[in-house]
Design a protein around this nucleic acid. Structure first.
Lengths: 350, 350
DNA sequence: ACGGTTTATTGAAGCGTTTCAAGAAACGTT
DNA sequence: AACGTTTCTTGAAACGCTTCAATAAACCGT
């Protein structure tokens, strides 16, 4: 019977001829409700277009039906933030949870989480950009707040999903090795980042196993221009036939640097990246890279977090394998074009 | 006096020796509170680390302190989603609002908004990806829900902020014209998208004004490969000396296509894009493009939305100008390098 | 048909705020 | 010092839901 106002549980109860408590039981499935009663209640809900108010549910229930996610400040690994968020949000929705977005104001990584908890703002958190000894992990763990990390955490009981960077790099190295490359160099980041070290380990381990020279390593920041300028030094000694890079940004820089040196990447020298940023397919030669399955990571994190919120004990850490996307930078433009049988002209014009 | 539980307004009231109502008044600045009283209350709040529970505030206040944002489904204009969201969230935070993220489940664009409203889930919405006759706009307007649009809306009273695509393209054309280019072609999208039509209008208008040939237009989907394959046709007739593209994706395709034809983009033929996606600076030659000021757009949208929520009447629509970022694709690698005075070797290695 | 059990349903007490009418203080005036 | 004003402060009623003890209804065996 609501006029302009949203229908309340009381309206539904009246409409169905039952008490508020029964409606609540139907909605939340808490107690046994007889089939006939349940049917009438559901019809009333349908007729009135009822949805429980989140605020009103939260108060007595002591939970917010909200998952918090802090937007990372640095734009580095955000390549697929949209895909990640999309899956976080839609997986959460399946468990009747919504996602609360927030940011950090200053350098204190923990402060925004503390603030949200103080105001009873979320039931749990999804963290990304985890590095060694992340302060947020300790903070949340101490307070017993449920959370799930995109990234590696030492404590096995913490929910964490990470992309297997080592395996990814090894897939790239194997790919190159099977193509006949024996002199494979690695361009990495400075030691000290969880992601960078992991990827380097992958190279190092497989290089030794395959009998390659594991010392052929150069390190640089994750910067296009720095990587570009490093190429002469990379080629100076005993020229590699392939370069495996820790990231697409670095790989794209190397690609540019090789061209500066008059070499044809893909043809004369192979290059691989990591992350499969959009630019990897938007350049020529297109870049062979490793796609992080952000969809799976996002969904997995939330599934496990939901399980833990529900009281089930969810498994802790898990690694997901990135997919090797082979493009022109390792197989050459000619071979890449084989898949592509279209006439050369008047194409693409509408 | 709370042991493990979060302090409530009652705890603060006790601690300060006042009533709950007074604490509420201090927190919300609703009534006049004497300075001495206010001071004691603030001290108590500080001592206890009190923050009002969002759920509990919402219930009697009838608002949620939440702004809703629906993640766009298509990944096309999401280039700077992270920057946009960052500013939306932090601007909202300044007004004591948080951001609720959601997605659409099916093709119905309106449904998720309806659902959130039914459950009293948000006080207002930020919309992006607005196109002609967006159903969401009508829906929200009819219900009197406050919202702000990233994109153009016919109704002037609706809050909308958009990037001036026409002005952006004109900046690119002017740039090229001042460089001496007289034969400038435009590669656009098919007619019918608000963004694409706007950008094309910019070209068309200025081309006429400058006495260029405004007919030198080719249209294609926003796809790298299609754009790449369209280059031979683009060059066939009366070869242009510069190509203005409706987007970076198209421009990068054109760049690749030109190289396929044995031409040197930047040197022999200039190219511009639009959006300044990361790839624009991660390729060689780097791409001259137009950066959309997503920071300003996000902040402006939320500022105005907040004003409207507060009862002030905020101005409706506004256009912000994109920034022309000049790179090698229009001025050539040599000139671009002038800014860059570093020795060519051993650079970038750590 | 009747007590004993199990299963459904409900009344009412919160949950932590806001809000507003009403009461208490302070402040000017005379 | 008493009175009318104005300025502060407060009690208590919502807000819409969950929950749980308590009641009612159905069921079962005899």
């Amino acid at each position: 019977m609501p006029s302009g106002r949203r229908p309340t549980i009381q309206d539904v109860a009246n409409h169905a001829g039952v008490s508020m408590a029964t409606v609540s039981n139907v909605v939340n499935g808490h107690a046994h409700v007889r089939d006939g009663t349940k049917k009438r209640v559901l019809e009333a809900i349908d007729a009135l277009g009822y949805q429980a108010s989140r605020a009103a549910r939260s108060l007595p229930a002591g939970r917010t039906f909200l998952l918090g996610y802090c937007l990372p400040d640095d734009t580095s690994p955000n390549a697929a933030l949209d895909v990640f968020l999309h899956h976080v949000v839609s997986t959460a929705a399946r468990a009747d949870l919504e996602v609360l977005l927030f940011t950090q104001k200053d350098l204190d990584k923990v402060q925004p989480y503390a603030e949200i908890l103080q105001r009873g703002g979320a039931d749990g958190f999804v963290l990304s950009g985890i590095d060694y000894n992340d302060t947020r992990v300790d903070f949340l763990e101490q307070r017993g707040i449920p959370f799930a990390c995109f990234g590696r955490v030492a404590d096995e009981s913490v929910i964490s999903v990470d992309v297997d960077g080592a395996a990814g790099i090894q897939a790239a190295v194997s790919h190159l090795h099977s193509l006949g490359h024996e002199r494979i160099a690695f361009v990495g980041w400075p030691e000290g980042s969880a992601t960078g070290d992991d990827r380097f380990d992958g190279f190092s381990t497989l290089a030794i196993a395959l009998g390659l020279d594991p010392q052929r390593v150069v390190r640089t920041l994750n910067d296009f221009d720095l990587a570009r300028k490093l190429v002469p030094a990379l080629l100076s000694d005993h020229r590699p036939s392939a370069v495996v890079c820790v990231s697409d940004t670095v790989a794209l820089g190397v690609l540019a640097g090789l061209r500066d040196e008059g070499l044809t990447p893909g043809g004369q020298i192979a290059v691989t990246g990591f992350d499969d940023v959009p630019a990897a397919s938007l350049c020529a030669p297109s870049l062979t890279s490793l796609r992080q399955p952000m969809d799976r990571v996002g969904a997995l994190l939330v599934e496990r977090l939901v399980a833990r919120l529900t009281g089930e004990d969810a498994p802790g850490s898990e690694l997901v394998e990135p997919d090797l996307i082979v493009r022109e930078s390792t197989i050459g433009a000619s071979e890449a074009a084989l898949a592509d049988e279209s006439p050369p002209t008047q194409e693409g014009i509408l």
